[in-house]
Amino acid sequence: MANTAQARKRARQAVKQNAHNSSQRSTLRTAIKAVRKAIAAGDKAAATSVFQASVSTLDSIADKKIIHKNKAARHKSRLAAALKALAA
């Protein structure tokens, strides 16, 4: 247990920040699942619009350093490839 006032405050802040970051990661996963679901449905127009929204979400979460920028790029690349394969 934290012994100093500073350590107690940092522990409180860590709990709050962890809850926020967990929420952001959940939003990220939901966005990725939405694109995968739209691609599975086979509707290219709907999948494209959902993909654009999820790219925005991925970029904002990467900018906040909740996930690494390369991980965001990898997800975007794989989703874009799946979307392109849907068209072909």
Score class of each variant (00 low, 15 high):
residue 30 T to R: 09
residue 56 S to Q: 14
residue 37 K to L: 09
residue 6 Q to R: 01
residue 43 D to E: 12
residue 59 D to N: 09
residue 32 I to Y: 03
residue 56 S to G: 15
residue 7 A to E: 00
residue 64 K to N: 05
residue 40 A to P: 15
residue 47 A to F: 13
residue 18 N to K: 14
residue 42 G to V: 06
residue 52 Q to F: 08
residue 43 D to N: 15
residue 37 K to M: 11
residue 43 D to P: 13
residue 38 A to P: 15
residue 43 D to F: 14
residue 25 R to N: 08
residue 65 K to Y: 14
residue 33 K to L: 03
residue 55 V to N: 12
residue 62 A to L: 00
residue 80 A to M: 10
residue 81 A to D: 00
residue 40 A to W: 06
residue 68 H to N: 01
residue 17 Q to P: 14
residue 8 R to V: 00
residue 51 F to H: 14
residue 10 R to C: 04
residue 12 R to F: 01
residue 19 A to M: 08
residue 77 S to E: 07
residue 63 D to K: 09
residue 31 A to C: 01
residue 16 K to F: 11
residue 67 I to M: 01
residue 64 K to H: 03
residue 11 A to L: 08
residue 49 S to D: 13
residue 46 A to D: 10
residue 46 A to P: 02
residue 65 K to I: 13
residue 38 A to W: 09
residue 46 A to L: 04
residue 36 R to S: 13
residue 63 D to H: 06
residue 31 A to G: 03
residue 52 Q to S: 14
residue 22 S to E: 15
residue 79 L to Y: 04
residue 16 K to V: 15
residue 19 A to F: 08
residue 40 A to T: 13
residue 36 R to Q: 15
residue 22 S to L: 12
residue 34 A to V: 02
residue 70 N to Y: 11
residue 9 K to Q: 06
residue 57 T to M: 09
residue 41 A to K: 15
residue 67 I to R: 02
residue 51 F to M: 14
residue 51 F to C: 10
residue 57 T to E: 09
residue 78 R to H: 13
residue 73 A to N: 06
residue 25 R to D: 03
residue 31 A to F: 00
residue 26 S to A: 13
residue 60 S to F: 05
residue 61 I to Y: 07
residue 21 N to G: 11
residue 87 A to F: 05
residue 39 I to Q: 08
residue 54 S to Q: 08
residue 34 A to W: 04
residue 74 R to C: 05
residue 82 A to C: 02
residue 78 R to M: 13
residue 88 A to N: 12
residue 72 A to H: 05
residue 7 A to M: 00
residue 83 L to Y: 00
residue 65 K to F: 14
residue 24 Q to L: 14
residue 57 T to F: 10
residue 80 A to V: 04
residue 83 L to C: 01
residue 52 Q to K: 14
residue 2 A to E: 09
residue 36 R to G: 11
residue 28 L to Y: 04
residue 66 I to A: 04
residue 9 K to W: 00
residue 47 A to P: 09
residue 20 H to M: 12
residue 39 I to A: 09
residue 56 S to D: 14
residue 74 R to M: 11
residue 62 A to V: 00
residue 88 A to W: 08
residue 31 A to D: 02
residue 74 R to Y: 10
residue 33 K to D: 01
residue 77 S to P: 08
residue 45 A to N: 06
